[in-house]
Nucleic acid binder design. Structure first.
Lengths: 126, 126
DNA sequence: ACCATAGTTTACGTTAACGTAAACGTAGGC
DNA sequence: GCCTACGTTTACGTTAACGTAAACTATGGT
């Protein structure tokens, strides 16, 4: 199906990051591309992982936190018997995200006020 | 009105940070407490600034970015004549925040799925 | 044969945001 | 008079997340 593969520079330019960054992520164990000779070849899954890592970064997660979340989706990491602790982990993540969401909404509300004042200032200037 | 004042350790314990952190913020010009002798005395305004800085941090802003946003609220920095560029700045901040909000909502949706799978797993185990 | 392009490894450099420690001042309590 | 708590300055250390540079390999084109 989605068995496309990508070179390192393809992904770098797609995501607006450097190849150094992608190799760094591998060095840190965040991704595991396969090799053709000595060249790295990235699968669709590798690509998604990078995408999710960058999403995490945008909302202020560390790389480690991002992969923690990503690996929640990964059935391989979800050994049964730890379902309860996994649910607690999910709950923790959710609470933090909800707080971040509130923070963002508060900040947006503040910006609304500022903008209103600006536009008022412009009217007066006319 | 809110002319209370605070010691450095009061604010540190209230916000769960160290005094070192607060002095560091001053060193970087983020806050400007007044002095009594050589001791720092923080006003209600100083306290709010710290609170807003920490809010920024929670959503992944750098300290510099946080004060940028905070200073948007500050009329002292809003010299008229730059209203247009200020509005553009506000718009930029808003777009980024909206994207972060989408990222968070996506991640929350992902967590919902994981949790559903977990609970399903628990039912089967009963 | 030669060059440009894309890839590789190895290693040192850099920035932000503090932590940690030393060495000292000062005010209150016993 | 001494200890304790709280404050100060100065300075070096630390971690994360890459940047930058050097030196090399592999390959397709002319």
């Amino acid at each position: 199906m989605t068995d496309r593969s990508y070179s390192i520079s393809q992904l770098a330019s797609e995501f607006g990051i450097t190849t150094r960054t992608i190799r760094f992520y591998e060095e840190k164990g965040l991704i595991h591309p396969r090799r053709q000779g000595q060249k790295r070849v990235y699968s669709a899954g590798d690509r998604v992982r990078i995408k999710l890592i960058l999403r995490g970064k945008r909302i202020g997660m560390s790389l480690q936190e991002s992969v923690e979340v990503i690996d929640l989706y990964d059935p391989a990491h979800n050994n049964r018997g730890q379902l309860h602790s996994l649910i607690r982990t999910v709950q923790d993540k959710r609470e933090r995200l909800l707080r971040q969401k509130r923070d963002i909404e508060d900040m947006l509300a503040g910006l609304d006020e500022v903008q209103a004042l600006c536009e008022q200032g412009l009217e007066n200037a006319d």
